[in-house]
Nucleic acid binder design. Sequence first.
DNA 1: CGTATGCTCAAACGATCGTTTGATTCCTGG
DNA 2: CCAGGAATCAAACGATCGTTTGAGCATACG
Lengths: 204, 204
Amino acid sequence: MNSSASTKERILTAAELLFAQRGFDGASLRQLTAAAGVNLAAVNYHFGSKDKLVEEVFRRRLDTLNAHRLAALSKVAGQPQTTLEDVLDAFIRPALALSSDGSGSLFMRVLARAFAEHDDHLRQFLSENYGHVMRQFTAEFARLLPHLSREELYWRIDLVTGALTHAMSGFGMIQRKSGVSETAHREQTIAHLIRFAAAGLSHP
Amino acid sequence: MNSSASTKERILTAAELLFAQRGFDGASLRQLTAAAGVNLAAVNYHFGSKDKLVEEVFRRRLDTLNAHRLAALSKVAGQPQTTLEDVLDAFIRPALALSSDGSGSLFMRVLARAFAEHDDHLRQFLSENYGHVMRQFTAEFARLLPHLSREELYWRIDLVTGALTHAMSGFGMIQRKSGVSETAHREQTIAHLIRFAAAGLSHP
DNA sequence: CGTATGCTCAAACGATCGTTTGATTCCTGG
DNA sequence: CCAGGAATCAAACGATCGTTTGAGCATACG
């Protein structure tokens, strides 16, 4: 159609990198457009405003992440032989796959930054696009942990979320050792996070 | 001595609130000095720069927090009958006491924000003032969890740190129910966090 | 060919930022 | 009482921010 698709993608990619590095306020549109090799006015032309650009950065990744998570959850939800580890796998694996993806490896860090910033507008946007996913997972956790009160369950999910967000956003020590393949390392990391989360969720 | 002590304290208190609410970059010195009821130039006069003010906000709270944590740790470290829960108590209780303190309740949120922001200068400052505390706790964890490899231990401590930071910074659902005293609620919360952290650290 | 449309560009806009200045007020020690 | 450093104040500085403007360029269609 038009060459603007390339320009929009270049902006989104550069924005993801700079937002992860310097935060949403810290990354200026001048740095951003310079890194993307486009004109300063291109952001407002293609996205309307900087805030809309931030939303688009999230939407591009969250749409696929949510789809993968829900698809994986639907395969195990409600089934009698499903274990806690199965549900955690459905939650963690798509995020790790995104982290391992070269073009999306920075997004989890952007997501963690969004959690840390208390911007009401951004939180509302995330809640609208992310809330139903967490609700479905919470419902399945509740089914598998019937001995926990509602309050207790929310507590533990909240703590697990904090741990996973912290770890997957790049603060953690998810660093592949030499001699370990990318796939093997990812499986190792997933197993690690699942065991930790399962222990935190289901301890007596 | 001089009335500047009051001015400095007013600035520090207002800064803690605004930094927690809007972040370090998001809170401007004009908002800050207006909230504190002091002149705009007072920040640069008393602290030298905004960055130095940020450091002072941390220093004021971290000094006492670290002291309390190390004092509690020294009572149990190295002793044969010490449990994992004892060490976690030494780590968590001082932070919760700070959160419950009226004047310092916002600091944990400021601390979480500092973790999220990847500002190198701030991270170096925190590492200098905080690193030795984490090293001492890590050493004690290593003593109590001898079956874990060094890498495995770091992994779990990192995840626990993420969970506790997330929870204690106010994202979590640490909300006192009506009819529960402040002290009772704090003990309840501490017990909660300790059980979660112990499960995550020591699971097989 | 002419023109309409989508896009890019340099330049400027007003606002806000952290910081500095210089005068003024406050307060204390001699 | 009064000299002098400490503290406060209004005002301005230069820099940078997100956004807007209007001209220029390209491509596609009648």
